[in-house]
């Protein structure tokens, strides 16, 4: 069971990041969530969602989804490799089990862009 993304449902509201950040920090911020909204290419409206787990990244890119094992893309590009240290600044997704609740990002998303499978 993991959190997956329907990328084209996403409208980029960042509620998932806020809810996840709250789960970890009991405060509101966009810096510590396990779910990451990618919105760095604003002029192109290229936007996606990344879920960080212990073993991989679930990438909800507009052109499709992928599960990328950490370390796998290290072989690609310029020194490339997915960020891997499991518990650093950003916790990996624990499906909110440590709080004993349903995954908050899934619950809070207004457009069903996130789901459990």
């Amino acid at each position: 069971m993991r959190v997956k993304v329907r990328p084209l449902n996403c409208t980029g509201c960042a509620l998932c990041e806020l809810a996840c950040g709250f789960h970890w920090d009991e405060a509101f911020s966009l810096i510590s969530s396990s779910v990451l909204l990618y919105r760095a290419e604003e002029k192109k409206d290229y936007m996606g969602v990344i879920i960080k787990t212990e073993e991989d990244l679930f990438l909800g890119r507009p052109e499709g989804t992928a599960e990328m094992k950490l370390g796998e893309i290290q072989k690609q590009g310029a020194g490339g490799g997915a960020s891997a240290k499991p518990i650093l600044i950003r916790q990996t997704c624990d499906l909110c089990k440590s709080a004993g609740v349903e995954p908050q990002c899934v619950e809070i998303c207004p457009h069903d862009a996130l789901y459990l499978e």
């Binding site: 990451l36 990618y38 760095a40 990344i50 893309i73 290290q74 690609q76 590009g77 310029a78 020194g79 490339g80 490799g81 997915a82 960020s83 891997a84 240290k85 650093l88 600044i89 950003r90």
Partner: peptide, 22 residues
């Protein structure tokens, strides 16, 4: 940098961009 798909091998260790902010 944290959202960029990179890591660097320095010596025997792999360093991810997150460590910069750490």
């Amino acid at each position: 940098l944290e959202k960029m798909p990179v890591a660097w091998r320095l010596g025997h260790k792999v360093w991810e961009p997150e460590k910069i902010r750490m």
